[in-house]
Amino acid sequence: MFAEKVIELLKESERNPDTIDPFKDEKIRQILEEMQTLFIMNMNDANATTENKSLWTTVQVRHSALERNKRCLLAYLYSRMEKIKTLRWEFGSVLPPDVRELLSDDEYEWFSRYSTNLASYMRSLGQDIGYSGIDLTENLRPPKALYMEVVCTTDYGKLELSDGDVVMLRRNSRHFLPAAECQTLVRQGVLKQIV
């Protein structure tokens, strides 16, 4: 049956809407091969239509199958693109290596270009009034207090604060730090806020 493999691809990616799967390079190649075969068969049959009018319907069917494959592939790549966009906002501009290997090379290049775009946009905000840009990825929720109490969940190492102080972040150590410094780390899961 036509277009079965693409559907499998899509079903797998729908199963985990919250994380991104590794890029299924092999499967995509197979699908492209299938499309190529269909196209060649269609070409042959289209040329043969002049003699046998009934082959025209077959050409229609194969053409629909080709369009269907194309649509599914595009949808797969688009959904991955949306997920990669979220990755930038959640993980920050540097991806940890185990996330990096889930993306294909082209996807990673897209990610870096998106990051650059975002950075130049953020820098340009408020330039007419004299600010050197606003970081949009922090304070995604309205902040409630200047300082917050956090406990560290992993051995992160040294964290340098903006006034030069160095804090040693070890597993299960508790700190009371300015919210602006800790926010990115809380979003990345290194620190956990205590209420």
């Binding site: 959640e90 409630k144 809380v186």
Partner: peptide
């Protein structure tokens, strides 16, 4: 007021790992 939470994708990524 709501406590800050780990980002959605990050948490799920860690769980899967």
């Amino acid at each position: 007021d709501c406590a800050l939470k780990t980002a959605n994708m990050v948490a799920n990524h860690r769980k899967r790992k």
